[in-house]
């Protein structure tokens, strides 16, 4: 097991190093039209001299290989560089934004899992009924709706029209300092409802379809029948045995869902102004903030690689057939 972990870890690091290098190459190829200080064309105080001087101060006039070696060396030491658009170290920006995105994605994944597994299990047990087919069609339809449309609808109706939820942000800007910890957590949850709900809805749809299939693959198997013969109720058999045995494949889909959720988070965070990594990326792209863009890509790939690595490890732990080598 240890060997498996070490090998998997090394592979993950290798992938991230490739991503970092490719991303650097992409961003710094000098067909790039944007530079971090070229923003305001209409502003007479933004002179050519000032611009050249800023480019020099931040080392953008050095040869690319030099820039690369410096950058990757710093990166290896955990230094992501300086964000020009935010005037602070990139590391500081990441420390603020990553937990917010993890909160958003984690909540969405948790709700999506609970909802998706419940629905998938129910569908498998009720296979062939009209209700099952309708719910399956609904799930497929949901999967066909782009995240940004769901988010736009959630913003337009429950937030902007009916005022059930706040329109944007992560916390009540005025009240948060005078709240106690519990109230503050509740406030964040209340702000989290729509953005996380949007992602959770889509995650649940994907998971339910996946889980239903996995359950059907397990249901006819011998031991479920054995369980039924042994006198357990059909419900008990389905839930206890089949569910336990399809948890393995379920960990796989979590690994697959992470990149999808992250992609969705870019849209959802932008639309709901959730100040996480997705919105950071969107701002960084618009501000031509190279170090921040690169950091965003690396964070994204670390998250995805961690997700799939974790899924592999979990799979080895959770699936009795994998464990016994069957």
């Amino acid at each position: 097991m240890r060997r498996f972990l070490v090998a998997r870890g090394a592979q993950a690091l290798g992938v991230i190093a490739i991503v970092a290098t490719l991303a650097f190459a992409l961003v710094h190829v000098h067909v790039a039209p944007g530079d971090p200080f070229g923003e305001s064309l209409d502003d007479p105080t933004n002179t050519a001299a000032l611009h050249a001087q800023q480019m020099h101060t931040w080392g953008y006039d050095q040869p690319l290989p030099v820039q690369y070696v410096k950058w990757i060396g710093n990166l290896a030491r955990g230094n992501f560089g300086w964000s020009h658009s935010r005037n602070r170290p990139v590391g500081e920006v990441l420390r603020a934004t990553i937990p917010r995105t993890l909160l958003l994605m984690g909540t969405a994944l948790l709700i999506g899992l609970l909802g998706g597994v419940a629905l998938g299990t129910w569908q498998a047990a009720r296979r062939g009924t009209i209700a099952e087919r309708v719910s399956g069609a609904v799930a497929l339809t949901l999967l066909s709706v782009p995240e940004f449309l769901v988010a736009l609808a959630a913003l337009a109706l429950p937030a902007a029209r009916w005022h059930w939820f706040p329109v944007s942000g992560m916390a009540d800007p005025a009240g948060q300092d005078s709240m106690n910890a519990l109230a503050r957590a509740g406030d964040v949850l209340w702000h989290l409802a729509l953005p996380a709900g949007t992602l959770a809805l889509l995650a649940a749809a994907a998971i339910s379809r996946y889980h239903r299939t996995a359950m059907l693959a397990v249901l006819p198997e011998e031991f479920v029948r054995t369980a039924r013969v042994k006198g357990a109720s059909e419900f008990g058999a389905v839930v206890r045995h089949a569910l336990a045995n399809s948890l393995g494949p379920l960990t796989t889909i979590i690994g697959v869902l992470v990149p999808a959720l992250f992609g969705g988070a870019v849209f959802v965070e932008t639309i709901f102004s959730w100040p996480g990594v997705g919105r950071m990326m969107f701002d960084a792209v618009h501000g031509n903030d190279y170090p921040l863009v690169l950091a965003g890509v690396i964070v994204g790939s670390v998250l995805v690689v961690a997700g799939s690595t974790l899924a592999d490890v979990l799979l080895a732990l959770v699936d009795p057939r994998v464990r016994t080598g069957a």
């Binding site: 913003l155 902007a160 329109v167 709901f272 102004s273 969107f282």
Partner: peptide, 19 residues
């Protein structure tokens, strides 16, 4: 207190909602 949202539409919705 300044609150920040990148999207102009969101800012309008906030002020309409009284946020």
């Amino acid at each position: 207190i300044w609150t920040f949202a990148p999207d102009a539409q969101t800012l309008t919705k906030q002020v309409i909602a009284g946020e």
